[in-house]
């Protein structure tokens, strides 16, 4: 999934690096709101979780398997700002420590997975949550829809970048069609897995799921109309 060196020309790589740098700068501020001063250790451990989650192979069929990208998953679990930071750090570590993903394409990879993937996933998640019934059970479903949407969107962004600064002559229409169709399938897997993982966390520790906060706040208010009637430690 990682874009290697030489896929996109130098100007496009540098432009995406600038996009990535601004997104990271904004996220550093935003993450303070999501995690306050616990940001460094918590985001670090969540980044490690995303890294580990990408290592699990999910069997598909006939011996093939795939793995999570985790942008939408991280956005629903810890909030989109922190998720952008986590994906950025995962890509930095993969690029610098594991030679996975080109160093000149780091900005491109951060833009695709850490910005487009995370924020598409989160935006679609919030939209779906607004439409679905206001129950805690809607959170995994909405997360799954966000996870599904994030993959083809990132792929289409890549196709767009390739049209601008690609290094190979490909027919625009067929490139978009190929990227969209393959990544819609991959997106189905990402969506199902995101929904399953969020569902399992919601079942045991709903308080840890950032995307479930509003619904939980509403349901706690509904259950206890009189304030200070009970205190949950």
């Amino acid at each position: 999934m990682h874009v290697p060196d030489g896929f996109l020309d130098l100007p496009t790589s540098l432009a995406t690096a600038a996009v990535a740098a601004s997104a990271v700068a904004l996220s550093l501020r935003g993450a303070r709101r999501e995690l306050d001063d616990r940001a460094a250790p918590l985001a670090g451990l969540v980044a490690t979780f995303v890294f580990a989650a990408q290592m699990i192979n999910f069997p598909v069929a006939a011996g093939t398997s795939g793995h999570l990208i985790g942008g939408a998953l991280a956005a629903v679990l810890v909030g989109p700002w922190t998720a952008t930071l986590c994906l950025t750090v995962v890509l930095l570590v993969q690029g610098l420590l594991f030679a996975d993903g080109g160093l000149s394409a780091l900005g491109t990879n951060i833009t695709l997975m850490g910005v487009v993937g995370v924020w598409t996933g989160y935006a679609v998640f919030r939209l779906a949550l607004a439409v679905l019934p206001r129950r805690i059970g809607s959170v995994p479903l909405a997360a799954g829809i966000g996870g599904f949407a994030s993959v083809p969107m990132a792929a289409l962004t890549f196709a767009g970048l390739f049209m601008v600064g690609g290094t190979a002559p490909l027919d625009a229409g067929s490139l978009v069609a190929a990227m969209a169709s393959v990544h819609t399938l991959i997106g189905v897997g990402e969506g199902v897995l995101t929904a399953l993982v969020v569902g399992s966390v919601v079942a045991v520790r709903p308080d840890l799921v950032h995307g479930a906060r509003r619904i939980r706040a509403a349901s706690i208010q509904a259950a206890a109309p009189a304030p200070s009637s009970g205190h949950r430690a």
Binding site: R38, P41, L42, A43, G44, L45, V46, T48, F49, A52, A53, I56, F58, L68, L77, V78, V192, L193, L196, V197, V198, G199, S200, V201, A203, V204, R205, L208
Partner: peptide, 20 residues
């Protein structure tokens, strides 16, 4: 997949709590 996903869910909870 549900079993593997539950595994990842547990891993998230453990990692988050470790972070805290």
């Amino acid at each position: 997949w549900p079993v593997l996903a539950t595994c990842l869910g547990a891993l998230f909870v453990r990692s988050y709590e470790r972070g805290e």
